[in-house]
Design a protein around this nucleic acid. Structure first.
Length: 468
RNA sequence: GUCCCCAUCGUCUAGCCUGGCCCAGGACGACGGCCUUUCACGCCGUUAACAGGGGUUCAAAUCCCCUUGGGGACGCCA
């Protein structure tokens, strides 16, 4: 066996949701971990439902996640001629045949079988008729009538099904177009795919596809089927059921490496390890670690994972992201009023406190607005900006105003000294100052907050607060 | 209906293949505490699970069978 080639083959009927992204991630990891290739094929043969918009959305999402594919993107719709060529070969070799049964006739066969408690299937009445091409005729695979088809699933282990369970599936429709199962096999074979990792819902297709490989005399690739993702109610996650586009998570301010990490741990494990860098994932991934039962998407844990990455992230990068989000929110002109440098100074203070970029931006608000626009929380004001504390603030302001250098250290020295001098507890002046300067009772450490705010803003805010 | 797959704390999972180290470990959450200038972070602790029943065995979460429950498939959709 040569190098591992895996693939991701979405049908472009909508955005890339979290389940699809996870499948793509595992396929990507499989290839990368073995130094192989990861190819992308768009299964756009359903022209009714496929849209360019969806194709773009899928590509964008994969790009955001960093799941780069090798080579050109293959569009299945462009390969119909090749598919038909294979079908003709199958007919010529006696592994497929024309069938002129109508849909109604086949439905009747299925109904009858179901009544009799058997598996509903086509009864093979045209198998030996030796029909040629003709209008309204389909081509069916001449599937084996006995024995069984088995394979070793990379995640589920050995799977075997009696051939009597399968009927002679249609390879070419009466309108001349190839069917999905045929197209997938031909494409995977032609692309040299050695490992097919896909969603659970394809387990039943696999033996059928193996039959086609065998009929063509092709090597059968390795198959693996990953279980689906469930919503909090244990129901399958679907578009209308909480399965968000991965780009929705981007909009909510989650980091792509957090999405990757969380998704990887959802259904895959490596001992007790929870946090994995992309490099570690590539190094440690192997399909044996994939779980075989469906898992529930847990937003709380995902948030925790994201907060871990927020803490580790480069402040410069966070500042850039905050600016992007701000731009989306208020437009370029307004966003430009907040400097990158300021945001980069604020970010480290907020890193242990923010669980997403959106959250961080929200908490950065007091740092971004000018004193005149600072919003004061009514409760906080009533509780901490009393007459007594205002007097204290005025006295403190004088001391701060005398500072030449307004740094964390100098501010701390002044405040500590002030507390000693007045014989009060630090808390007694800390909370009023905090409220005066941020408008709320919650903020990063006082000294760092004042230092980042700078002398001018600090003084202005204390003065404004005293007047409230 | 028939076939296929699945089943460990609320959730993600380790352990299962190669029985004993498991009266089941980690993580998130929840709860309590510590730290502390607020809020977080961090740290410490508590909570909580082998779906049920039969076997096999000196010994079963681990092997076998059955039941139950969940999911998927049975398309001239992908």
């Amino acid at each position: 066996m040569g190098k591992t080639i895996s693939r991701f083959a979405p049908s472009p009927t909508g955005f890339l949701h979290i389940g699809g992204a996870r499948t793509a991630l595992f396929a990507w990891l499989l290839a990368r971990s073995k130094g192989g290739e990861f190819v992308l094929r768009i299964e756009d043969t359903d022209r009714e439902r496929s849209t360019q918009e969806a194709i773009d959305a899928i590509i964008d999402a994969m790009k955001w996640l960093g799941l780069e594919h090798d080579g050109e993107i293959i569009f299945q719709s462009s390969r119909a001629d090749r598919h038909n060529e294979v079908i003709d070969q199958l007919v010529a070799s006696g592994n497929a045949y024309y069938c002129d049964c109508t849909k109604e006739q086949v439905d009747a066969m299925r109904e009858k079988a179901r009544q009799e408690g058997r598996k509903p299937k086509y009864d093979g009445s045209c198998r030996e008729k030796d029909l040629g091409p003709g209008p309204d005729r389909v081509v069916r695979l001449k599937a084996p009538l006995e024995g069984s088809t088995a394979y070793n699933d990379m995640v589920k282990g050995p799977i075997s099904i009696d051939n009597t369970e399968m009927d002679d599936m249609i390879l070419r429709r009466s309108d001349g177009t190839p069917t999905y199962n045929l197209a997938v096999v031909v494409d995977d074979h032609d692309m040299g795919v050695t490992s097919v990792l896909r969603g659970d819902d394809h387990v039943n297709n696999t033996p059928r596809q193996i039959l086609i490989y065998k009929a063509m005399g092709w090597d059968v690739p390795n198959f693996g089927h990953v279980p689906m993702i469930l919503g909090p109610d244990k129901k399958k996650l679907s578009k209308r059921h909480g399965a968000l586009s991965v780009m929705e998570y981007e909009k909510m301010g989650y980091l792509p490496e957090a999405v990757i990490n969380y998704l990887a741990r959802l259904g895959w494990s490596h001992g007790d390890q929870e946090l994995f860098s992309r490099e570690e994932l590539v190094e440690l991934f192997h399909p044996e670690g994939l779980g075989n039962s469906p898992s529930v998407f847990d937003l709380k844990k995902f948030e925790w994972v994201n907060s871990q990455y927020m803490q580790q992230a480069d402040p410069e990068r966070l500042a850039t992201l905050m600016q992007e989000f701000l731009t989306r929110e208020v437009g370029e002109e307004e966003a430009a009023k907040v400097s990158h440098a300021l945001l980069a100074k604020v970010a480290p203070l907020l890193q242990p406190r923010a669980k997403s970029i959106v959250d961080m931006l929200e908490q950065a608000r007091p740092f971004m607005v000018d004193t005149t626009f600072l919003a004061y929380d009514e409760k906080a004001v009533n509780k901490f900006l009393t007459d007594d504390s205002k007097a204290l603030l005025e006295a403190l302001a004088e001391k701060l105003d005398a500072l030449d250098e307004f740094t964390e250290e100098s501010v701390e020295n002044v405040m500590r000294g002030f507390v000693d001098e007045k014989g009060i507890k630090f808390k007694e002046v800390a909370q009023p100052t905090r409220v005066a300067v941020t408008g709320t009772t919650k903020s990063p450490g006082l000294f760092e907050t004042l230092a980042v705010l700078g002398k001018d803003q600090t003084m202005a805010r204390i003065r404004r607060a005293v007047e409230l």
